[in-house]
């Protein structure tokens, strides 16, 4: 499958003419999980096509949102970019360097520049380690500084994420969900990364705390010049946090655009359906809002439909949709859609 992706040279300019540097470039990335069966000798009988050919770029200093229903492959995309899963095929470039083929020490060095924040604040911290050890772990693994320097760095990091350094000797179970998420954030910042994949970092938190963590993420982005890939499953949270948003469906990206553009002018029928489910704060608009209810369920990623992945649920599908896979094309400046019906 080939998606029409612009090369890095053709996109140095944004629509408004500002310079932008590509930090992460993902090209035709695939991650298939094999399903094996057999008692002694296991053969590969099928594969879960969790990520099935996605291409996009993330620019220095921006926040790219990645949204889609549960199981569409968002987490797998994030983890494959970070090489926590090795890609089945495709390429991931970080600062222009191909990282999907890196191994051993080179990969370890690269890991200092890109980190991850996890969804579940309870599962993401080792219950047997004190907060100080958790936050210092990246420094220990990379052999940075001596004991005293590490302690100082840990205190500094805890303050940075709004936790009192007094807590270093406490264990994770003594903290609330929001505090734990801050600890996880401190750990991911320990190595001064430039890129962070945040995998639904606020989904598991109380609504009242979600805003605090989002504000913290934004403050850190401003102070440290971070670049985020922000994964979320609903569009409302992403809107004010992300510069651009990519919508994913069944292992593929169906639409990418700047945040405001995507919200005001969604082109893909799937994006339209997702947005129609988001309540609007204006009562007049809310009154006129039409909900597009999608029929059926998401097909299995083991056996995706022929043609466009969305054709089983699409309200506007025509013959070509059942035959050919649509390519992601730039229909408006910086607005990419993969749909036969939009052009």
């Amino acid at each position: 499958m080939s998606q029409a992706m612009p090369s890095a040279q053709t996109l140095p300019q944004r629509a408004d003419g500002k310079e932008r540097r590509v930090l992460v470039e993902v090209t035709d990335l695939k991650k298939h999980f094999p399903i094996r069966s057999g008692i002694l000798i296991q053969r590969e009988v099928a594969a879960v096509k969790a990520v099935d050919g996605v291409s996009f770029q993330i620019f220095q200093g921006e926040t790219l949102g990645l949204v889609g229903e549960s199981g569409c492959g968002k987490s797998t995309t994030g983890r494959t970019i970070l090489q926590l899963y090795r890609p089945t095929s495709g390429s991931v470039k970080f600062e222009g360097q191909e990282i999907s083929t890196l191994k051993g020490e080179e990969l370890r060095k690269m890991r200092r520049k890109m980190q991850m924040v996890f969804q579940d604040p309870y599962a993401s911290l080792n219950p047997r380690m004190s907060v100080g050890r958790i936050v210092a772990e990246p420094l220990v693994v990379h052999n940075i500084g001596n004991r005293k320097e590490r302690d100082e760095r840990v205190a500094e990091l805890l303050e940075l994420v709004g936790l009192n350094p007094y807590f270093v000797n406490r264990y994770p179970h003594e903290f609330s969900g929001g505090q734990r998420q801050r600890i996880g954030l401190a750990r991911s910042l320990a190595l001064n990364p430039s890129f962070i994949v945040a995998d639904e970092p606020i989904s598991a938190l109380d609504v009242s705390i979600q805003a605090q963590v989002v504000n913290l993420l934004q403050r850190l982005q401003n102070e440290l010049g971070l670049t985020y890939l922000f994964i979320a499953h609903d569009l409302s949270m992403v809107r004010h946090l992300c510069d651009r948003v990519a919508v994913m469906y069944l292992g593929k990206i169906v639409e990418i655009a700047e945040s405001e553009e995507l919200y005001t002018n969604p082109l893909h029928p799937y994006t339209q359906a997702l947005l129609s489910a988001v309540p609007v704060p204006d009562p007049v608009v809310e009154e006129r809002r039409q909900r597009i209810i999608l029929k059926g369920d998401v097909p299995s990623p083991i056996n995706p439909p022929k043609g466009c992945n969305f054709n089983t649920r699409c309200p506007v599908a025509v013959d070509v949709c059942y035959d050919q896979d649509p390519e992601l094309v730039e229909v408006l400046p910086d607005h990419w859609v993969a749909c036969h019906r939009v052009i």
């Binding site: 990969l107 890991r111 200092r112 980190q115 991850m116 080792n126 047997r128 693994v141 990379h142 991911s188």
Partner: peptide
């Protein structure tokens, strides 16, 4: 996820087994 987090910072298999799994 905490094991994944250790992988993400580049911890070795040995460290993951002895520091994160065994305890």
């Amino acid at each position: 996820e905490f094991v994944e987090a250790a992988r993400a910072v580049g911890a070795s298999n040995r460290r993951i087994i002895f520091v994160h799994l065994l305890p």
